[in-house]
């Protein structure tokens, strides 16, 4: 077991923990740790630019977005008024019956996950690993050595246009989902 393989095993364990975590907030934090582990793997692969992007965007920005969304949809239960029968049912507003979003989901499928993962791990060890070893012999090695800048600006210049279009589309979607309040004169 080398440091490299240990990092992969750690990321796999953190991914399973993120899926199995009971609390949504804990799940999001585990996802952030998965991102940190992935960026450590990228650093280990001598890919620092991708690692920095992964660490700043995925472990930072996306985690902040997730935590914001969890906070918005999952308010603190202790302060929520409880129904007389002790359930977390909230008062009816606008004709919509509001229930606690965390309730009503069966946990049994998540408790079965370690068993399913163990079966998948054993099956993959016997079937997937020989397949990947056969794929390794098909690899075509690149002869030229290029830098990231030359790849982005020369070879994949069209991708930048796609990225900018996608960012603009995201901003447009967000502004149409949450329109700003018009000021009344």
């Amino acid at each position: 077991m080398t440091y490299h393989t240990l990092l992969f095993a750690l990321v796999t364990g953190l991914a399973v923990a993120a899926v199995m975590a009971r609390s949504l907030l804990l799940s999001v934090l585990m996802l952030a740790l998965v991102s940190v582990g992935a960026s450590l793997i990228l650093f280990n692969f001598q890919a620092p630019w991708a690692a920095v992007f992964e660490l700043s965007v995925c472990a930072g920005l996306i985690t902040a977005l997730f935590i914001g969304a969890v906070t918005l949809v999952n308010p603190v239960r202790d302060k929520a008024p409880q129904a007389p029968d002790g359930s977390h049912e909230r008062p009816i507003s606008n004709g919509v019956k509001r229930e606690d979003p965390a309730d009503g989901e069966s946990r049994m499928r998540f408790y079965a996950m370690p068993l399913v993962m163990a079966i998948a791990a054993i099956a993959a060890w016997f079937y997937a690993v020989p397949f990947f070893e056969s794929l390794e012999s098909w690899a075509r090695f690149s002869s030229r050595s290029s830098t990231l800048g030359s790849i982005i600006w020369d070879l994949r210049r069209f991708d930048l246009l796609g990225q900018l279009s996608l960012l603009a589309a995201g901003v447009f979607a967000l502004s149409s989902i949450f329109p700003g309040r018009k000021t009344q004169k």
């Binding site: 990228l42 692969f45 001598q46 890919a47 630019w49 991708a50 992007f53 992964e54 965007v57 995925c58 920005l61 996306i62 977005l65 997730f66 914001g68 969304a69 390794e136 690899a139 075509r140 090695f141 690149s142 002869s143 050595s145 290029s146 830098t147 990231l148 030359s150 790849i151 982005i152 070879l155 994949r156 991708d159 796609g162 990225q163 996608l166 960012l167 589309a169 995201g170 979607a173 967000l174 989902i177 949450f178």
Partner: peptide
């Protein structure tokens, strides 16, 4: 990319993928 000695191209693809991922998550969460 590490196997085929194409790390620079892999990094460019990963950066593009991270941008797409961030936009998808932002729109999905909203």
């Amino acid at each position: 990319g590490a196997l085929t000695n194409n790390l620079a191209l892999s990094q460019a693809l990963i950066i593009m993928m991270i941008v797409i991922e961030a936009v998808v998550v932002a729109v999905g969460l909203s």
